[in-house]
Structures are given as structure tokens and as C-alpha cells.
């Protein structure tokens, strides 16, 4: 297996009142070549923090990153800002959620795409301009010459996201991190952008880390899925395995919360309680235990680990074995 990126025991903590609270707490995962790895979870589970840690986009005075992020024998977590700049944009690039706030409002989009080329390549001005036009064409823009001279506010949301993607792929990176790339878009545009991402990935063979909270998006494009809860990975599996046989109580509860056409009951499953805030996160035992109080304490592991229950399918803690849903009428179902 060609492993592109390997994360080992990553802890990212934020400083609050002189103590560090880990938002990402011991995450290990690997990204392979030609793969779309989806990271799913609700807000506050640490999925965006994980992405930003890989890119090194945090203020180092207020955050603490421990652990290793290995890319081609280099530990990205230990690099200085200058060394990171050599990697960012060239080898690893990022697509942000909100293209309007990620793009520079005072620069023509063509120039913004060119920026990465100026920094990382020795192409001449003519060659760069040419490359920008090919890139725009590649991301499905009809009239690249005209669009390159426009400002972000003159473009629609879908077009802006296409520009973001063009910026991300301008130096043919090996890894693309897409942080909620379609959340701000309409469904029709979302479908187009996702198709575009998959197509580009097939062409370039890059690995994509797709961060999203939308399980529908995951089902449409991902190859492998990591489910995060409260800073930890709770389940990791190939796409079909996860959607057909989800095991961890959290994953299963999430699936039952999706409104679906062919469902018999019209009540959606609700996960009891709320996602604990960073300060009140339980740091020992099963972090999901509080939200499934009807499962006896003995079912949880004292120190929950990821267990491989079938090839490539990892589940944290042992509570999934005795998990069942509770309806309000007191019925149990699995």
C-alpha cells in the first residue's frame, strides 16, 4: 500500500486559562494514494482541527501539537514556518468551506491562482498565464479568459468554489484537504463540485481528505471513512462496510437520525444529551458512555481502544457489542 500521509497519536490542544485542552486527542490514521478518505462527525468533534493541524495553520503560541504527521519521512508537526511553506500549496493543499472569505476580495481570481505558481515554480510569466487558463478549464469554467480577470464578488458560489479548487490543484499536490467543500452550496452545485473533485483525483492520483458532516456526501464519493467523536476516532472502515454494517453506537445513532423517504416510523432517532464542550470532555473511559446511559457500565472498556473487528474495520470500545436502541415506549431494537 502506498501510504501518502501517516498521522501518529496526534494531540492538538488549545490554551484556555493557561491550560491546554486537547481538541484532537490521540488520532492515528493514514491516507493512501488514490484514495478519498472522509472524516465525519458533528461540530466540535475535532475534524476541522485535525485538518488545520496537518496544514500547520495554527498560531503556535496558543496551540500545542503533539505527535507525528509523517509525509515523505518528514514530520510536518515539527517543521518551522519556512519549511512548511515549502510543502504547503506544493505538496499538500487545502480547499476551504467558505470560498468568499477564503479568496482575496481585492485580487482578480486569475492572479490568485497564479500566486502559488509564482511561489513554487520557475515558470515564466507567459507560461503561468497559460497554466492558469488550463486550470480554469480543468475545473469546468466555460470562459477562462474572461473569468480570470474577474473579482470573487462577481462570481457565483459554485464558481468561487471552482476557483478554490483551481488554486488547490495548481501545483499538482499529492494531498488535498477539503474542509466542508460543499456545505455552503446548493445541491445541484454540490453534485457538480463533488463530481469534479472525484474526476480530478482520478486524473492526478492525489489523496483527498474530505471533511464533512453530511453522510450523503460521504456515501457518494468516499473510499474509506473515519468517524470522530469528542476528539477521538470511534470507527474507521471502508465505505461499504461502514454504511452497511456500522458498529459503534455513535455511528449507528447518526444513521438513525437521517430523515429518509422509505422509513416506516416518522420519528427520528435523537442522541441523548449534548456533545461535551472541550473543557468538560471526559478524558478517561468511553467518551460516548454518557449519551447511551441505558447501556450498563460493564459493557464499556476502562481504557477504550480501537479494535479491528474485520479487515480494515476498527471500532473503539467494546460497548458496541451490547448496544441497542431504546424507543420512547421502552421497546428495544438493534
Amino acid at each position: 500500500m502506498d501510504v501518502l500521509l501517516e498521522i501518529k497519536e496526534l494531540h492538538t490542544g488549545f490554551r484556555m486559562n493557561d491550560t491546554f485542552y486537547n481538541a484532537v486527542d490521540g488520532v492515528s490514521l493514514s491516507l493512501r494514494k488514490n484514495e478519498i478518505l472522509a472524516i465525519v462527525g458533528e461540530s466540535g468533534c475535532g475534524k476541522s482541527t485535525l485538518a488545520t493541524s496537518i496544514m500547520g495553520l495554527f498560531d503556535q503560541r496558543t496551540t500545542r501539537i503533539q505527535g507525528e504527521i509523517l509525509y515523505q519521512q518528514k514530520n510536518l508537526a515539527a517543521l518551522t514556518e519556512e519549511q512548511l511553506n515549502e510543502v504547503r500549496g506544493l505538496e499538500i493543499s487545502m480547499i476551504f468551506q467558505d470560498p468568499l472569505s477564503a479568496l482575496n476580495p481585492l485580487m482578480r481570481v486569475g492572479d490568485q491562482i497564479e500566486e502559488g505558481l509564482i511561489y513554487h515554480t520557475d515558470l515564466s510569466k507567459e507560461e503561468r498565464k497559460q497554466r492558469v487558463l488550463t486550470l480554469l478549464q480543468q475545473v469546468g469554467i466555460q470562459d477562462p479568459k474572461h473569468v480570470a480577470r474577474q473579482f470573487p464578488h462577481q462570481l457565483s458560489g459554485g464558481m468561487r468554489q471552482r476557483i478554490m479548487i483551481a488554486i488547490a490543484i495548481c501545483c499538482k499536490p499529492k494531498i488535498i484537504i477539503a474542509d466542508e467543500p460543499t456545505t455552503a452550496l446548493d445541491v445541484t452545485i454540490q453534485a457538480q463540485i463533488l463530481d469534479l473533485l472525484v474526476e480530478l483525483q482520478k486524473e492526478t492520483g492525489a489523496g483527498i481528505i474530505l471533511i464533512t458532516h453530511d453522510l450523503g456526501v460521504v456515501a457518494e464519493v468516499a473510499d474509506r471513512v473515519v468517524v470522530m467523536y469528542a476528539g477521538e476516532i470511534v470507527e474507521e472502515a471502508p465505505i461499504k462496510e461502514l454504511f452497511l454494517h456500522p458498529q459503534h453506537p455513535y455511528t449507528r445513532s447518526l444513521f438513525h437520525s437521517i430523515p429518509q423517504m422509505n422509513k416506516k416510523s416518522d420519528r427520528l432517532n435523537v442522541i441523548e444529551g449534548i456533545v461535551p464542550s472541550l473543557i468538560h470532555l471526559p478524558r478517561s473511559g468511553c467518551r460516548f458512555a454518557d449519551r447511551i446511559p441505558w447501556i450498563p457500565q460493564e459493557a464499556h472498556e476502562e481504557n477504550p481502544q480501537l479494535h479491528e473487528i474485520s479487515p480494515g474495520h476498527f471500532v473503539r470500545c467494546t460497548c458496541w457489542k451490547s448496544f441497542y436502541f431504546n424507543t420512547r415506549k421502552g421497546e428495544r431494537y438493534v
Binding site: A191, F243, Q260
Partner: peptide
């Protein structure tokens, strides 16, 4: 047709 389906089968 643009709504993502929550099943990876037949995508």
C-alpha cells in the same frame, strides 16, 4: 437527481 443518497451502493 442531485440529492446525495445515503447508500454507497450504486453510486
Amino acid at each position: 437527481s442531485a440529492i446525495p443518497n445515503t447508500s454507497p451502493i450504486g453510486r
